[in-house]
Design a protein around this nucleic acid. Structure first.
Lengths: 151, 151
DNA sequence: TTTGTTGCAAAACGTTTGCAGCCTC
DNA sequence: GAGGCTGCAAACGTTTTGCAACAAA
């Protein structure tokens, strides 16, 4: 259900957005979009930069710039998972996020739960129009639980 | 229900934690704890530092150090609400958090919902032991919704 | 007396910015 | 050709670190 969307249609959304906002269609921007959409899971600016260096040279500044644009047209989502470093992930067809975060080792795991999703998305607000959500559950992963028991 | 807990009992929890972990009971640590618990809402290290300077001199480094300790004994909670700056708040008796975040103006509002809380806290995991959660709902606040309609 | 903690200043880190040259439009 | 975009390097603001002096145990 998530991966039915082709890269072409994603690019089209991007093109439309750029046109509409009078931004230029540069090769760098499309290269960045492609790399993001061929990658599974969370990444940060630096990881993306290193990942791209293998086959396409872009500066970190351009990556940050493009991430802003992609954020604005909702093709990616930004997380701040308790660290200084912003995490991103592709967003199309996948804009609700449940995370388990270990408060000891920092490991992040995603999970899905349709029922929970319905409860959360079903919540309506008087003066707020919600588009998506992120849920962060903090606790201990199996490993850390075991380690800390012996401390 | 939140404010029944006295400062004394909070201090006791802190003392027990320090003792157990062989950390020293310094006046700076208790002064920081007190200031945090006499403050309502989110704060960051710098705000806390400025707030304290009026009646107690502590270095920023010590504040960061103490925030780590308070985090470890779960007397405060840390948020990264989309910015570079970590936000904190006192946690006792109040360790689940629902936020509405406007993706246009960045304003953050909290809300409570017992039913939602139950659904989320009721969720059990095979290999994860959750202690608390934060829910972030992204969308448009009333004002921004109105502004963007005319764009 | 020992050793963890403090304050200070410097360093580190991710991110942003200024600017000259380049490339879409 | 005009002006947005890029890459580079320098700047920024928050957080961390190294170290000497201090104080809790």
């Amino acid at each position: 259900m998530k991966d039915e969307v082709s890269l072409e249609s994603i690019q089209e959304i991007f093109t439309d957005y750029l046109k509409k906002h009078k931004h230029r269609k540069t090769p760098e921007r499309y290269a960045i979009l492609e790399h993001i959409y061929s990658y599974e899971g969370h990444f940060n600016a630096d990881i993306l930069h290193r990942m791209m260096q293998k086959d396409y040279r872009v500066s970190l500044a351009t990556i940050y710039n493009t991430l802003e644009v992609l954020l604005a047209c909702k093709l990616i989502i930004k997380h701040q998972l308790g660290t200084q470093v912003a995490q991103y992930e592709k967003a199309f067809g996948n804009n609700t996020h449940n995370h388990l975060i270990c408060t000891n080792c920092g490991k992040v795991k995603e999970f899905t739960d349709k029922q929970l999703k319905n409860s959360i998305q079903g919540r309506k607000f008087a003066h707020f129009y919600s588009s998506h959500y992120s849920l962060y559950m903090y606790g201990l992963c199996h490993k850390c639980k075991a380690i800390l028991k012996n401390a």
